[in-house]
């Protein structure tokens, strides 16, 4: 594969250029970890101080939507991993189908999330006037729920944009030249997935036996 790589500015060595994108993305993932670290600190604080009332609020989260979404996103991570390997190995058809599959799974995650939001809105689970629990730690749980899931959904959307771009490059026929972009995209998608895996128990499994 190394022979297929075209050196571009500012690189002088193929070996360096090949690791550049993954290196950059890894550094950015460090940023992302600290970004989500901030809101997880808020969660830890609110749960520690909120006690029973916080858990009471958490019990209202729609566990089925959450669980299905977890499965959907985990599967998309698998397809993404296959797509990335296939790109590297030059299996164009597999890469195309797997990228397409990831895109569809990512979209269905957002759609399911949309249905879940609709249910939450119907049940008055938005803190503020008319909120089911009034002021208190339960409202803090739902503040976390909305902020974290919306932030995560924005990340999913950005990830879908990256995958769509990879698909477009594939259609153009030079995905092999962009193998490192595929690798970077996959890294980002896995991060989005891992963030969800952390959020899932915090949002849906609290206070349930």
């Amino acid at each position: 594969m190394a022979e297929d790589l075209v050196l571009h500015e500012p690189f002088e060595e193929a070996a360096r250029q090949r690791i550049a994108v993954p290196f950059g993305v890894w550094s950015f993932l460090a940023t992302e970890c600290l970004f989500f670290g901030g809101i997880l600190l808020f969660y830890a604080y609110a749960r520690w101080h909120g006690g029973e009332a916080f858990t009471q609020g958490a019990k209202e989260a729609a566990v089925w939507y959450g669980t299905i979404n977890t499965a959907v996103l985990m599967t998309s991570s698998l397809t993404m991993a296959i797509a990335e390997r296939a790109t590297k190995g030059g299996f164009r058809v597999v890469a195309r189908w797997m990228l397409g599959g990831t895109l569809m799974l990512g979209l269905s995650f957002l759609v399911i999330k949309g249905f879940e939001y609709r249910k939450d809105v119907h049940e008055h689970l938005i803190p503020g006037p008319g909120f089911k629990f009034g002021q208190g730690p339960a409202a803090q749980f739902w503040a976390f729920y909305w902020t974290a899931t919306v932030t995560h959904a924005i990340h999913v959307t950005i990830g879908l944009g990256i995958i769509a771009r990879l698909l477009w490059i594939e259609r153009r026929g030079d995905l092999l030249l962009h193998a490192t972009s595929a690798q970077g995209g996959a890294l980002y998608w896995h991060l989005v997935d891992i963030v969800w895996v952390v959020l899932y128990p915090l949002l849906y499994l609290v206070g349930r036996p």
């Binding site: 803190p127 803090q140 902020t147």
Partner: peptide, 21 residues
């Protein structure tokens, strides 16, 4: 910098959407 980004995001969430953080 990401920690600043998150703290400002939380400020925006509380100020704009009334989420009690």
């Amino acid at each position: 910098t990401p920690v600043l980004a998150m703290s400002l995001l939380l400020v925006v969430a509380e100020r704009a959407f009334g989420l009690p953080i």
